[in-house]
């Protein structure tokens, strides 16, 4: 029951679709990396803020 034969359009655009898929995948990874970087940066900022308040006390 499965469709075995690719439509001709799919074959013709296969390479473009693959490249686009790779680009989108890379974008997802980049957003993930940005998220981690921002969280780490924020954690460091909070940590140093806490350190200075403790010192002040």
């Amino acid at each position: 029951m499965t469709i075995r034969k690719d439509h001709e359009v799919h074959k013709r655009r296969g390479k473009t679709n693959l490249t686009l898929g790779v680009v989108l995948g890379a974008f997802v990874l980049l957003v993930f990396a940005i998220t981690i970087s921002k969280m780490v940066g924020e954690a460091k900022r909070v940590q140093s803020e806490n350190a200075t308040t403790t010192q002040a006390e």
Binding site: L30, A33, I34, I36, S37, K38, V40, G41
Partner: peptide
Amino acid sequence: MNPVLAFSAVL
């Protein structure tokens, strides 16, 4: 700047 954030900004 964090290198990942710097790279992303330029991108």
